[in-house]
Amino acid sequence: MRKWFITLGGALIAWGLFWPTGTQALKAKPSLPAPKSIHIASGILQPAAFQDKLQQYIGDKLHTLSSQKGFENWNNAEIHITTLGPGTHGWLVLLTQRGIDVGYLVITADDSGMLKLAEYGRGGTSLFSPVKLYASMLQQELIPSNMSYTDFRSSPTYQSERYYFSALQSLWKVTVSGAGGEPWFLDGKTGEILPLTMKDLKAVIPAKENPSKANVKLSQPSSLLLPTFDPYARLPWVKKPALTYENFEDVQKRLNQRDKIMYTAEYWDRSIRYVFPVTGYESRPDETPYLIVEQDGLRYLPFHSVSEQGKFYKSS
């Protein structure tokens, strides 16, 4: 049985005061202490203690997921960990093989310091993939056509930051040194330009979770993965009422019947609408259930988060 060991660089001096920055490429090693419940209290923390807890949490999640069908290539992946921010109390874990994305995790922490798996994904393009950012900016003629990926990553002219407010409010902020004016904002998954300004970012109010839904955990493991479909073939949100789901089991039942379910949500003062085909679900004992949506790869999103922030429709 494969286990994980992750070494983290940087230091945490005080919760909410200073967070480690930068990215460090890491290799999975066959050692990890037995997983345990982790709670990081507010206040001053010893850097070593914090790193051990974060290491153990990430290692536990990687160990669990890599043993599941479809995640086998995570076992030999190179791991890259970077902070999300600024001020969002989160970490991005990117997994690659020979420079190709194979998956990702987003770990966040609440005000009390409790860590949680905000989302994860596999296949296609990973969330916040720097390769995708480069390709998108090249395609949209935001950078010179003759600029290589290596030059882009090392250039002091283009400074990129990852912002993660929620699963569907994840974006790149790219600042051009010496250019003045507003920075560019690009979707964290697709790399598409978003019509946003710094004023929009400052106005973001983090989504509040409904405790009654956030704490729902199932006792039996279950999973389902269905073929994807074109969510724009029909536009049910235009002329049909949204489906009403009281709980995860309601969605699970629909998907088990092979219904084509779509999920849609509006963000940024309703200026951007996201539409996804729901292609399955994943639930593990004593963990929150996740819905699977297709967006250039599979994204596993906590059911309680998406159900609070958007609506479901039947495609056919």
Rank of each mutant, 00 (worst) to 15 (best):
P156F: 09
A118C: 05
R270S: 12
I292A: 06
L171H: 14
V251E: 05
K69P: 00
G70C: 02
Q24M: 10
G22F: 14
T125W: 10
L92G: 10
A179D: 13
A265Q: 08
D286L: 13
G99D: 14
Q56K: 02
H63I: 05
M137Y: 05
T21F: 12
V102D: 09
K253G: 00
D151W: 00
T279I: 09
S155K: 05
S177K: 15
P206E: 01
V238K: 14
Y104Q: 12
E246T: 05
S170P: 06
K202A: 10
V174W: 13
G103Q: 09
F312M: 02
Q295P: 03
H80I: 08
P30L: 14
Q139I: 03
K36Q: 15
N75P: 01
L127R: 11
P227W: 04
I58Q: 06
V176Q: 14
S170E: 13
Y158A: 02
K253C: 00
S222I: 00
L138T: 01
T228A: 08
M137G: 01
R153M: 07
G85I: 07
V238C: 10
T88K: 11
K311R: 03
P277V: 03
Y134H: 05
T108Y: 10
S305V: 00
A214Y: 09
G178I: 07
L243M: 07
Y232P: 03
E161H: 12
L171F: 13
N75D: 09
E246S: 08
A11N: 13
L235Y: 09
V275L: 13
S154G: 00
